[in-house]
């Protein structure tokens, strides 16, 4: 567990709701939930394996101060961003975004579950995309396919072969990206400066040490 986790646990001791409100993106909406149940009942992943707590329950757990259970939960990572809950919530909570905000916060604290496939994808995507300011699809796909080892990666690659060829034909995928750096944006430095500034502003807003 990270220093940030310790730091936040001390700063907000006994007030997890406040922690989420101030530290997680969109967390300030949590208190608006009236526990009607529409989001839970609308969620397509509801009660599939790994989906321990519907959004409604996560929001109640936050209020109840169940810090460890929430931060370690798989639930936020299982959200498919279908937006069913978002459009139906009678209180207009941006539920999908809150779920992502809590997930991201758990990750920052080093509390997100290990071997979480969505987390793996998000991380791979972020690193890939921020490196050159554009996504290198071939490398991103590779990093996903081979996350469980060489053999699993080859098997997965073969299974998806036809899809990949289709994408190449439609010019949606450039095999050449596998070699060299792939395409970049014009001002990679500029992008990196922007991201650094954004991190600085976020740290200031949330009263954290700049990362």
């Amino acid at each position: 567990m990270s220093d940030l986790n310790q730091q936040m646990a001390v700063r907000y001791k006994n007030n997890f709701l406040k922690e989420i409100e101030e530290q997680a993106e969109m967390g300030n909406w949590v208190k608006m939930c009236m526990q009607c149940g529409v989001c839970s009942g609308s969620c397509p992943t509801n009660f599939h394996p790994g989906w321990e707590h519907p959004p409604q329950e996560i929001f109640m757990m936050i209020r109840a101060g169940k810090r460890d259970e929430v931060l370690n939960s798989q639930s936020m990572w299982m959200c498919t961003s279908c937006y069913n809950c978002y459009v139906r919530c009678p209180r207009k909570l941006p539920i999908t975004h809150i779920m992502h905000g809590i997930a991201e916060y758990a990750y920052r604290l080093g509390r997100a579950p290990k071997m979480q496939p969505t987390l793996h994808l998000s991380k791979a995507f972020w690193n890939n995309c921020t490196k050159n300011g554009r996504v290198n699809e071939v490398k991103l796909t590779q990093s996903l396919y081979f996350k469980d080892g060489l053999m699993a990666g080859i098997k997965m690659g073969l299974a998806m072969k036809d899809v990949a060829l289709g994408l190449v034909k439609a010019k949606r995928l450039n095999i050449m990206e596998a070699l060299g750096g792939g395409h970049k944006c014009k001002d990679v430095n500029g992008i990196h400066k922007m991201l650094a500034k954004a991190r600085e502003l976020e740290a200031k807003r949330k009263g954290r040490q700049p990362a």
């Binding site: 526990q35 149940g37 839970s40 009942g41 707590h53 519907p54 409604q56 329950e57």
Partner: peptide
């Protein structure tokens, strides 16, 4: 009727 019961969060 489909939903989740808030008392216990059961579907």
């Amino acid at each position: 009727c489909w939903g989740v019961n808030t008392e216990g969060y059961k579907r």
